[in-house]
């Protein structure tokens, strides 16, 4: 393989178009009609960020100030106390929950992305019997309410010896991402030309090698986008772990938080650590989105041109 296009050949990425409006003739950011736009967007930003801002403020308060003081400003600053309490409560199980969630989301997200990529690539670029049927089934899977499938999934898992109540019981079902396959098909259709594959075949590359060395590098932004979607979905995963896990040391963080939040047997007031725990649980996802921004932006624009 001599040549790999380093960038997407035919789809204009957002990057390439990103700055072009800057040269709009006579554009002035602070012109009155533009000001209205800014004011509107600032308003929307306040809407998006206020709840998270509240969460941050609240996680710096003790149980008294949490409800007694003004919600949108600091009272006695107890963030460190709350963090200490959060990470030591019940033998420091919160850290374990965070690590579990990272494990579920990173491993499950990466593996399911790869599986979806392979399937989506095959659906888009390879001809085989049952192609259309498979795609129809992938779409159909999105229409069945998954919450009601948690118990049947558990019943299926219980037929496999030693699977339930382990990490695998949560990890394996997350490998399934019909939405990921759907996106992967769009990405592969949009960004990989048939000529490219034909050329690679001519060079004698095997189909897998073409996928691995030719298609995948082109599909990186799409892959990262799918990975992020799946990462968020797994980070949100609540009901399946509740059903298939019984050992609290294997719980993901949101199941753990829910355990604290709704446990009538809790004989202590846990509001401060629940709020602090919620705040900490948001951080890894937010940081991930921030750092992979470049890729998901490209991935989204890729997905948006072909609906």
């Amino acid at each position: 393989m001599a040549t790999i296009p380093a960038d997407l050949p035919n789809v204009p990425t957002e990057q390439s178009g990103g700055d072009r409006r800057q040269v709009l003739i006579g554009y002035k950011a602070w012109a009155p009609k533009n000001m209205v736009g800014y004011v509107f967007l600032i308003g929307m930003t306040i809407y998006f960020l206020t709840p998270l801002y509240w969460l941050f403020i609240a996680s710096s308060k003790d149980n008294t100030d949490l409800f007694a003081s003004f919600g949108l400003w600091f009272a006695n600053f107890k963030l460190l106390d709350n963090l200490t309490q959060l990470f030591t409560y019940e033998g420091g199980i919160y850290l374990r929950w965070i690590l579990n969630t990272v494990l579920y989301a990173v491993v499950g997200g990466a593996a399911s992305t790869f599986i979806a990529m392979m399937a989506g690539y095959a659906l888009a670029k390879l001809r085989f019997l049952g192609n259309r049927l498979l795609f129809a089934m992938v779409l159909g899977a999105a229409l069945v309410p998954l919450t009601t499938l948690a118990v049947p999934i558990y019943l299926v898992e219980s037929k496999i010896p030693g699977l339930t109540h382990t990490y695998w019981a949560v990890l394996l079902p997350t490998l399934l991402s019909p939405f990921g396959v759907f996106l992967a098909r769009i990405y592969a259709t949009a960004s990989i030309s048939d000529d490219l594959i034909a050329a690679a075949r001519v060079d004698g590359a095997s189909e897998f090698r073409i996928f691995w060395s030719v298609a995948l590098p082109i599909l990186v932004p799409g892959m990262i986008t799918i990975f992020l979607f799946q990462f968020v979905a797994i980070w949100n995963n609540f009901f399946l772990p509740l059903v298939v896990l019984s050992d609290p040391t294997l719980f993901p963080v949101n199941l753990g938080l829910a355990t604290w939040s709704f446990d009538p047997a809790a004989h202590e007031l846990l509001n401060n650590i629940i709020v602090t725990g919620s705040f900490v649980a948001v951080l890894p996802v937010a940081v991930l989105f921030l750092f992979l921004q470049r890729y998901w932006r490209a991935g989204l624009s890729l997905g948006s041109v072909t609906g």
Binding site: L49, L52, N236, N254, S261, S278, V282, A286, L288, F289
Partner: peptide, 11 residues
């Protein structure tokens, strides 16, 4: 605008 999407459902 995108940050709320990253907030876990339970949170």
């Amino acid at each position: 605008a995108f940050v709320p999407y990253a907030v876990p459902g339970v949170v």
